[in-house]
């Protein structure tokens, strides 16, 4: 699991340096190093991911899980990709700071490195409680509001967390539970389709019977 949490992307050539690198070809330049340093400074103090939860969910559900369950980027918050700390602008950094100081529950959290479910967790139980839960990730399920369903797929977030499915994707969930919910929601469409199919098959069947009989009559007349 640890290998997943690591981020290979920030090790590549730092982006701003690429054009420069083209100019200077095999000649490493001072600006390039500075850019690398900047990226490093932005990204290195951010080792604040919580792989304990990921490990727990993966083990208890048997499904593959990655950081995208709670984070904006599937490789976690570290790095320079979209939704990672190295990619934030000033306004987003400020939002991040506010989110990180939401120690008590009930504050409106909008962290740029978290997705809707991640923000929902911090909003519901507060950062302080969340950090405490690192030692017993299973308890997160008891503390989250039991009825909240962010993606409206009929499966509460808590259940999706334990199942290792994405709480913010209505196409992802325990197939049986999804079936039950969608079947109820689409009952009218299913009934109408059933009626149309029965009607059509019945009609086509009789039409073919009629055709066969008509061609028999034609044969006998000939």
């Amino acid at each position: 699991m640890n290998s997943k949490a690591s981020n290979p992307r920030d090790a590549g050539t730092p982006r701003p340096g690429k054009e420069l690198a083209e100019q200077f070809l095999n000649f490493p330049s001072v600006p390039l190093c500075l850019c690398g340093l900047l990226v490093f400074l932005l990204s290195s103090p951010s080792a604040l991911a919580y792989p304990e939860f990921q490990a727990f969910v993966a083990k208890s559900s048997g499904r593959t899980v990655n950081c995208a369950m709670c984070h904006a980027n599937s490789d976690g918050p570290e790095g320079t990709g979209p939704g990672q700390i190295g990619h934030l602008n000033a306004a987003e950094l400020e939002r991040l700071g506010r989110a990180r100081s939401a120690l008590q529950p009930g504050q409106n959290v909008d962290s740029p490195i978290l997705n809707a479910f991640g923000n929902h967790i911090i909003k519901s139980i507060g950062k302080e409680k969340f950090v405490e839960l690192k030692v017993s990730p299973a308890h997160l399920a008891d503390l989250l509001p039991p009825d909240s369903d962010l993606d409206q797929d009929g499966i509460p977030d808590v259940r999706e967390y334990l199942d290792g499915t994405l709480p913010i994707n209505h196409n992802d969930g325990n197939p049986l539970l999804l079936f039950r919910h969608n079947f109820r929601a689409n009952l009218v469409a299913i009934a109408l389709t059933l009626a149309a199919t029965v009607c059509g098959v019945w009609g086509l069947g009789h039409l073919l019977h009629g055709l066969a009989a008509a061609s028999r009559i034609k044969d006998t007349e000939d």
Partner: peptide, 21 residues
């Protein structure tokens, strides 16, 4: 057709696999 329709309407094919895939 009815079986296919109901299953396709109610069970997204991707829900059978882990989402990171």
């Amino acid at each position: 057709f009815i079986i296919l329709f109901v299953i396709a309407l109610c069970v997204p094919f991707e829900s059978l696999y882990s989402y990171p895939l």
